[in-house]
Design a protein around this nucleic acid. Structure first.
Lengths: 245, 245
DNA sequence: GAGTGGTCTAGACCACGGT
DNA sequence: CCGTGGTCTAGACCACTCC
């Protein structure tokens, strides 16, 4: 029985082990086989096995204890239910359900120069020319979120309202010559402003979630600062943390 | 010049490189030296260098591009400002400021059995005996958050209100014979309930942040399910994400 | 003391970027 | 094309858990 997954051995091993964990193959001990045994079974070195286990660990399925073994964590409901952040596609990935109608309304689009006040908000240098875009996200006819975005003109050249209406990310990856590498995300709960009441279907709620997303090119340049304000009760974020010692 | 940091080489190298990055040593190219050069400089193998770079990467300081090198990401304000989640101490780590007076009021404490409804909320099996604890967190005389916690009695034996008033985690790590290994965290914004209005100083806000924390022992057993409801405008969470390809 | 995962080495080949 | 980071190997020693 040959398996082929990605070209990488450690990913194939990760996939195989994950399947066996969810099938309950190791339920008697709640421990993975030892790294040595797995190395023999998959015909690889121990380091490659360790990389596969690292992936399981990142996902919160498993936890290694020196001297004992690789412990399988009891599963919970959230393992299936929620999305993980790490999308570079904005809201699309947030509403992972089926049968949703998503519309984007470009509410504002202009070019401006970063001043002191704006610089302190978005970490772009004073004097930088930027495109400013405001987009409202409507899901099943309900205004769920709006984005307030700033793009550096020196990197995202010749942005237009038509491009914004289609997909900025398609434009970046297809027309421009750079790639999106990474992003930093900050998440808060804040009192709604008059702008929030104006743009969102908040019903009786007077607070919003605020997700700040700073995006980098693969040259290490910060080129986008987007703030997503979204309504309560619709979105969740999941992380997994480990104790160091 | 010998440096000594932690016992691990890769952590020492990580610390050294991080300092040099923030000092601006590599500002001319915004690239780290090649892994080969770093291996020679620190007198280690390339794998050890790669582990150090991985730490920088996890922290959002650096991003590797095959064929080009390790790119240093432009720094932003949030690199200094916010905490990273991953505390196992509840709210203490959330208010990282100085001069804050934190009080904990145990508002409810009892022992009960998990029924169907509770089981679907907290992923504990039906019939499990648990301690139920409600604690209100008061920071500078303001009710900022409250915890609703369930602990498995089979693991956290003989919990008492006195222990809860002191520190459950000290009790676990000092008196009981197990360690805390990892936790899964879910974060949402939700409409406030009457309980929220009763317990929190929400002022005019009618929503709360909700942080669900599921905590595991080093045997892989889920033993605690805690929900923290907290007021808007006071807390933030930071993550860092990378594009795979 | 036996066995586990954690760290580390010194090589090798591959895929990709820049020239 | 050369140099880069990405993957992988086959060893070694250490720190820890468990009996």
């Amino acid at each position: 029985m040959k398996m082929r997954m990605a070209g990488n051995k450690f990913e194939a091993i990760y996939t195989a082990l994950k399947a066996e964990i969810t099938e309950g193959v190791f339920n008697d001990t709640m421990l993975l086989p030892t790294e040595k045994l797995l190395a023999e079974r998959f015909g690889t070195s121990r380091n490659t096995i360790r990389r596969a286990i690292q992936l399981l660990n990142d996902e919160g399925l498993v936890y290694s204890v020196k001297g004992r073994g690789v412990v399988i964590l009891e599963s919970t409901r959230i393992d299936q239910k929620f999305f993980r952040i790490g999308n570079f596609q904005g809201l699309k990935a947030m509403s992972s359900a089926k049968n949703v109608k998503i519309q984007t309304r470009v509410q504002d689009f202009q070019e401006l120069t970063v001043d002191e006040a704006l610089s302190s908000l978005i970490s772009f240098p004073v004097g930088e020319r930027v495109y400013y875009v405001r987009r409202v996200r409507v899901v099943n006819d309900r205004a769920m979120a709006y984005d307030t975005s700033y793009f550096k003109k020196s990197i995202v050249r010749n942005l237009s309202e038509n491009i914004v209406k289609a997909s900025i990310y398609d434009y970046i990856e297809q027309t421009l010559d750079f790639k999106i590498a990474a992003s930093k995300v900050v998440l808060e709960v804040i009192s709604a402003t008059s702008k929030d009441f104006e743009l969102l279907d908040l019903s009786t709620n007077n607070c919003v979630g605020k997700l700040v997303n700073m995006v980098y090119t693969d040259m290490g340049r910060l080129f986008e600062h987007t703030t997503v304000n979204y309504i309560p009760n619709e979105y969740a974020l999941v992380t997994f943390e480990q104790k160091k010692n």
